[in-house]
Structure formats: C-alpha cells, structure tokens
Design a protein around this nucleic acid. Structure first.
Lengths: 231, 231
DNA sequence: ACCTGAACACCGTTCAAGT
DNA sequence: ACCTGAACACCGTTCAAGT
C-alpha cells in the first residue's frame, strides 16, 4: 500500500480558494460591500493580506467568484417542476430574494454580465421559454428580456432597501417617500404625484411578479400572432 | 443707478458647484469611473482638493449631481409628440443611448434609485402610460415595469461594452462570446448553446426595443381583458 | 465667504524573505 | 509550493491656516 497521502493530514484551517471565497461572502453579507478588504479578510483567515493573492488574482476575481457561488446555490435550491410559467416565476423570486439577501450581488450582476453567474440564470430561464413553446429567434429575445427585467428590478429593489437605515421599517419608508412624491412640483411631476398613494400601498414582490406576468403575456401574444399568420 | 454688481466682475474661472459637476462629468466620460478623483478634479480646476468640499459634501453627492445633470439634458432632448407607444420607445432609446455614452451613469441609476435622475425618467414614462389609457393601480405597475426594464437592460448593455477593449469591435466581440457559448458543456447549458448563433446576429438596440414592445403588448392585453370584464 | 495644501486614516497590490 | 508582513502608490476626507 502507498504511504498515507498528504491530503489526509491536511489541516482544516489551511488556506484554499474555497475558504477565501466563503469568508469573502460572510464579510460582504455582514459588513456590506466596503467591508470586504484584503486586510479584514486576512484577519478573519488568520494570515497576512499577501497570502490571499496566492489563491486569487485580485479583488475583482474574488467578487466574481463570490457571485458565482451564491447564484449556484440559489439555482440549486429551485426545483424544476410545475408549468413553465410557474417555473419562471419561481426562478424570478429566487433571484429577487438572493439579491435582496446579498445586496452586493446586485452590483456584481449588473456591472459584470456575460459571466457565469448571469449565464446560469439565462440558461434556466431559457429552458422554460423553450418549454413555453417559443421558437426561433424569439427564444433569445424572450429569454433576454426576462433575464434583464428580473435582474434589473431585483437590483433596484435591493438598492432601495439600502437607502434607509435598517431600523426604519418598510411601511415607514414608503410613507416617507410617498409624502415626498406628493410634495413634488405639480407642473413638473404630475404623474408621479398621482401615483404617490399607490407607491405607499404597493408590494415590491407582487409588483415584480406582475411585471414578469406582463412580459410573459407579451411573449404569449407574439407567439399566438405568429402562429396565426404562420399556419 | 446702482453701482456695478460684484456678479458682473465675477471671473469665469471662479469655482462653483456647476463648474465642479461639469468637470466631474468630463472626467468620468474621459477616464472612466476610477478616473474621478478629488485630486484629479482639483488639478483640472486649478485648485486644491479641499476647495471642492466647500461646494460639495462628498463624492457620493458629486456622483448624484452628475447623474441628475446628464439625465436632465437627455430628457430635455426628447420631444413629446407622436403616439404614446412611440413616445415610450423614444424615451427608452434616449435612456439607452445616454447610459451607453456615459457608462458610469448606469451604476449610479441602478444603485441609487428614488433619486431625481430616476424620478425624471419615471415621470416621463408614466405620462405616456396614462396616455395609453391605463388606469388605476395598473398605472404604477406598468410604469414601474417599463422603467425597471429600460434601466436594467441599458445598464447591462453598457457594461457589456466595457468588458472588452474599445479596439475590439462589436462583431468580433459577439463572435467571440458566441464561440464560448457553443463550447459550453452540453449537459449543463443546452439552451445557451442553442441560442449562441442568435447572440452573434443579434442587434442590441433592436432586442431592447423588442422587449419594450413585449411589455407594452402585455400592458395592452391586461387593459383589454380588464375592459372586457369591467363593462 | 471661500480657498489652500499638508496631514490622517485608510485602500489594493507587490515582493523580498522566509518555511 | 505556499505563506508572511513590511512597503509602495494611491485613495477620500479633514482642518488649521490663510485671503
């Protein structure tokens, strides 16, 4: 038999890319985006800042790796049953909740697309678009529109949550913004003043899903129109 | 007659909030987001970094002011005629182009909503939603969905443009990503592989507008359905 | 009232030196 | 092969001192 491998005696607290990424996620979640510092990370990992650079090229790569990891976990947690329409809604809610729980992920997704994280979402949505019966180039258009909308709204929702201190609750925050909207100049902001009351009563997640339904209705409508003229 | 006002003799190169914001926009456009530095800004304005703090509270306020200014100019440049549908498309293209020309604006809009810049867009879109005949709480939902989609896609489009060096042209870039997509694992990314060819041929702006039309179709559909059951 | 610029408390990143 | 931590070249922001 071979002599015992070095792997077997590897200590659990040895540095590794995975441990670094996990620690980075904890730091980002706990302290916010400015909390992720090579010095803070090094302290948490009981080492010096230079050690991290052996496993990770730079801060940008670290952020990308953290995003990929969180999105992968999110996607893994969503079952693929139900109708395509329902599956898309569930994926949408999954992304919405993930960005809400990890606000730094939003900046990462909207600023660095074409990356693995975004591709994972695009792939899952795309399969459901196919299942919906969409064909040809409309598949790409429909999936793109859905992914863009889902990420766009989720990022903005998470950003809203960060504007105010966590101590202020949601209802109070909305009441405040609503009051601001009502106080706007009547000549410059007639529409915004009109819907100020609706802002106050609105439910972020419900509005978000209503938007998803709007796009799905549009997709279904286009498919039907095409089908009619095509047959 | 009153003695000549001090205003009349005010030198053109005196520091002012407006001049600072303009210089910041130039710096952001020319050097990118990391190029905006209080030291660089001070050099451009022929003064010390401390002087800027007399007119602007901090960097965050400076970025907000720069965003508001750019959006205001963009909105002022869009005429309000044509059908509501066409007006919404023009507003969408205006925002798309503005973020494309000033990529830093995207980060600002998606990370700091409820601000003046976003409100200006929301207001203009909202009026057209009203003109479209949408009523009640659907006004808020529809306008929110449109604004979220428009900003979300525009930000992602601008981010794509920054991934590659400006020397690489668009067709070459798309061909490269398309090839990457085709090389993806067949089991993990079946959909993405399928639409890789469409990515290559696609037209950002056209896809973007197709998405806007999708949402508008959804809005029209909901309004019709409501109208039918309501009368 | 407004401007100056040195100084403070940080950053990301590098790199000789260690094991 | 991997880790250490001092050092470098920056940041945003403050503030005594000037005009």
């Amino acid at each position: 038999m071979a002599k015992p491998t070095r792997g077997a005696e590897r200590r659990e607290d040895a540095l590794s890319r995975d441990r670094i990424v996990d620690a980075a996620i904890q730091l980002l979640d706990g302290e916010g985006e400015p909390g992720l510092t090579f010095r803070a990370l090094a302290t948490r990992l009981a080492t010096g800042p230079g050690a991290i650079y052996w496993h990770v090229a730079n801060k940008s790569e670290l952020l990308t790796a953290a995003s990929d990891a969180v999105v992968a976990r999110t996607m893994a947690g969503i079952g693929a049953h139900a109708t395509p329409h329902e599956a898309i809604r569930r994926l949408a809610v999954g992304v919405f909740d993930a960005i809400d729980a990890h606000p730094w992920l939003g900046a990462q997704l909207s600023l660095a697309p074409w990356r693995t994280a975004m591709l994972q979402i695009f792939e899952r949505i795309g399969r459901q678009v196919q299942a919906l019966g969409v064909r040809g180039s409309a598949q790409f258009t429909s999936a793109s529109a859905l992914v863009s909308y889902i990420i766009g709204v989720s990022v903005q929702n998470a950003a809203n949550g960060r504007v105010v201190a966590p101590s202020v609750d949601r209802a109070e925050f909305l009441a405040r913004v609503s009051a601001q909207w009502k106080a706007l100049d009547a000549h410059e902001y007639p529409f915004t003043r009109t819907v100020a009351t609706q802002l106050r009563e609105h439910d972020d997640l419900a509005e978000f899903l209503a938007g998803v339904d709007l796009i799905l209705a549009g997709i279904a409508g286009s498919a039907k129109r095409r089908g009619r003229t095509g047959s």
